[in-house]
Write a protein that binds this DNA or RNA. Structure first.
Length: 707
DNA sequence: TGTGTACCTG
DNA sequence: CAGGTACACA
């Protein structure tokens, strides 16, 4: 038994500590950890450091096989019921390793509740560890001034410094779990969320137990009837098996589900996969029912079992959500305080979403949260890697406008498959069910999964493309919620429940931030689309192509920005009418129009800056002839431009843009060579030339479905 | 006066 | 990328 320092410090008394406030909690923990040493002399700020120092001593003792046995204490002033009550439920042995403390060998057969409590206590300790700020520890260290443990203090100090140097996005990594610079409100929010998460896990565990009981009862009935119905019902069994295979196509394989009895006892760590457990349970139960044959009691049992299972799941989830409803307001207010998008003015949105949340990496640390790519209207049909994902997925789809632009078409030499499926999920990283649960906890049943720009740390941290909404996650979500809905319309098809019942708003959410609202509504559309697709029996992501819903955005989204950038390859000076034509899903007003125009102004600015820079560079390099200047796809200038307007490099830049770029570069080159740049307005002549080189934007850009 | 643009700045 | 400003133009 090797108790490392963090392990030891993480162990704690039972669950009652969780309900205490921080200081009480600390006192309680110290009370048990400090060998009955009175702690009243220590200010709260120094308790942790004291605890840590003692823990180090304790560690040495433990390494010398000196087990510390908790005993009742006499700290009447600090005593609380939780400490007393936790005596039985928590010792310092690892419950999973079944290492009872000395003198408790007779308790090897501990009831399951003890295991659960021990496990719960460990989780609480993790939470508590997160709640403790390093600063407080530092403060405590400074206050102590105990020369005896100077070295240990230095070690702790050193470790704190190391932790504080961690990048922000690592603070909430799953293996870290100890926010370093989030003392105060953020850490309390984190603690609260983890508590809620823990509660959900408890619910799930109770569900598991209930299911197990049901299963045992079922086994009894099965054993009674087994001899009577041993070799009948092969045909019916096939049918039911077919149902099972349908219902469990997205759960674990049959090999796992058939091992369910072992799993429920030995895989408590899987409590974050309730859908799998439920699926396994159900399958097993259904299999057993199936073995009963056509007997009436078998059918009754099946129906009863279905009902009981649904009811148990419903009750558990309802309980969780009821608890959540009380905390959701607080959480939402706290979230909004660090909401990534702050409203600026109507139609104008400050785009600081990547850096607002302390839990998210900054945008400069690419790759960060990358919303799903809108569609694959690109020439390249190869699967896109997640790293290339840059913009949010907009599911705003609208029937193609009838309006036509003069299309004298393009010098585009390569066709674009603009009508390809707008949604690509294959490249996404699957969202784990535990993450879904976390999301449920943090945003509640009404929090759609689309607000992933505001993802909780667990989602943000996952991967650069964690903003993606993978297909698996959607189906997983439907599975989770299917239990909640308790639908029986499709017996045996667990998980094929319409998402329409997910309380997802079918209208725009109220959101202070237009951008966030737009992004959220996009994902809501996704949910709706998925629900409709499911109802129609279309489970392929491609089926979204045929689903069109009228939806006008009231704000510009990252998708629109990306689209605008791609349009810049064709037109540098789009008129307002052109913009309105090519953004049919945008509800235009003065601000929106100005913003779009501003975008193109910024695009031009960057474009001209690059042109001037490379023109001057050419002159510096000794170039003296315009003919020597050319822009190709592999030249540095093009790469710079492509990186700016087509960051994911998933769009085939039209040849015309290369021609225009070359002309622009030559214009700058000659102007500089002729020393025209001495004139303050020397660029105007160039602008005048370039603005005439605009070409038509492909018709496909008019369709909002290409977002 | 409203609109579009370039330029500067953060 | 957005805000602010100055300028030109209809």
């Amino acid at each position: 038994m090797n108790l490392s320092l963090p392990d030891q410090s993480m162990r704690s008394p039972g669950e009652a500590c969780l309900k205490e406030d921080k200081s009480e909690l600390l006192v309680s923990c110290c009370h048990r950890n400090m060998f009955e040493e009175p702690l009243t002399a220590y200010p709260n700020s120094s308790i942790i450091s004291h605890l840590l120092r003692k823990t180090i001593h304790n560690k040495r003792a433990v390494n010398g096989n000196m087990f510390y046995l908790p005993t009742p204490t006499t700290l009447s002033g600090l005593e609380d019921q939780s400490v007393m009550g936790s005596k039985d439920s928590m010792d310092y042995s690892d419950p999973l390793e079944h290492h009872p403390p000395h003198g408790t060998s007779g308790e090897m057969e501990r009831p399951l509740s003890d295991h659960l409590q021990a496990k719960r206590a460990r989780v609480e300790n993790i939470i508590r560890g997160m709640a403790g700020s390093p600063n407080s520890r530092l403060q405590g260290d400074e206050d102590m001034g105990d020369p005896e443990s100077e070295q240990e203090r230095k070690e702790i100090l050193k470790e704190n410094k190391r932790k504080q140097k961690l990048p922000q996005h690592q603070e909430n990594s799953p293996n870290n779990g100890r926010p370093t610079s989030m003392a105060g409100s953020v850490s309390s929010v984190s603690t609260s969320k983890n508590q809620e998460c823990h509660k959900l896990k408890q619910q799930l565990q109770s569900m598991q137990k209930l299911l197990q009981q049901l299963q045992e009862k079922f086994f009894q009935v099965y054993n009674q009837n087994d001899s009577e119905n041993s070799r009948t019902e092969d045909g019916d069994g096939d049918i039911v098996h077919a149902e099972q295979s349908n219902s469990l196509t997205q759960t674990k394989g049959a090999s796992e589900t058939t091992q369910f009895p072992c799993a429920i006892n030995g895989r408590e760590g899987c409590e974050n996969r309730p859908d799998w457990m439920a699926g396994g349970q159900k399958e097993k139960a259904m299999t057993d029912v199936n073995c009963l044959g056509n007997k009436e009691d078998g059918r009754n049992l099946r129906e009863t079992l279905k009902y009981e299972l649904s009811r148990a799941v419903n009750e558990s989830i309802d309980t969780v959500f009821q608890k959540l409803s009380s905390t959701q307001l607080n959480q939402s207010s706290q979230l909004s305080s660090c909401h990534p998008c702050t409203p600026d003015r109507a139609g104008s949105v400050k785009r600081t979403r990547m850096s607002c949340s302390p839990l998210e990496p900054s945008e400069t640390e690419e790759p960060t949260i990358k919303p799903p790519r809108p569609f694959q209207y690109y020439k390249s049909s190869t699967p896109q890697s997640p790293e290339q994902q840059t913009e949010a997925l907009s599911l705003v789809v609208r029937k193609s406008p009838n309006s036509q632009l003069n299309s004298n078409s393009q010098t585009v030499k390569q066709p674009y498959t603009l009508h390809q499926p707008p949604f690509q999920f294959g490249y996404t990283t699957p969202m784990h069910d535990s993450q879904i649960l976390e999301h449920l906890l943090k945003y509640g049943p009404h929090g759609n999964f689309g607000g992933l720009t505001c993802l909780p740390p667990s989602l943000d941290r996952a991967s650069p493309d964690s903003g993606d909404l993978p297909w698996e996650s959607i189906s997983m979500r439907s599975k989770v919620m299917s239990s909640h809905l308790g639908q029986h319309s499709r017996p045996g098809t667990l998980g094929s429940v319409s998402v329409d019942g997910l309380c997802l708003p079918h209208v725009k959410m109220e959101c202070r931030d237009l951008q966030s609202m737009a992004e959220r509504s996009s994902y809501i559309s996704l949910s709706i689309s998925f629900a409709r697709a499911q109802d129609q029996g279309c489970y392929s992501p491609n089926s979204f192509c045929s689903l069109n819903f009228e939806h006008i955005q009231e704000g510009l989204t990252p998708n629109h920005l990306k689209k605008a950038k791609l349009m810049f390859f064709y037109t540098r000076y789009p008129s307002s009418n052109v913009l309105k034509t090519y953004f049919p899903d945008v509800k235009f007003n003065r601000c929106i129009t100005s913003q779009l125009i501003k975008w193109f102004s910024n695009f031009r600015e960057f474009y001209y800056i690059q042109m001037e820079k490379f023109a001057r560079q050419a002159i510096v390099d000794g170039m003296n002839e315009v003919k020597g200047l050319s822009v190709t796809r592999d030249c540095e200038l093009f790469r710079a431009l492509n990186m700016h307007y087509n960051k994911a490099n998933d769009f085939q830049v039209p040849e015309r843009f290369l021609e225009v770029s070359e002309i622009t570069l030559q214009e700058f080159f000659t102007a500089i060579l002729l020393a025209k740049d001495s004139d303050p307005s020397w660029k105007k002549a160039i602008y005048k030339v370039i603005c005439k080189l605009d070409s038509d934007v492909p018709e496909e850009f008019k369709s909002s479905t290409c977002l």
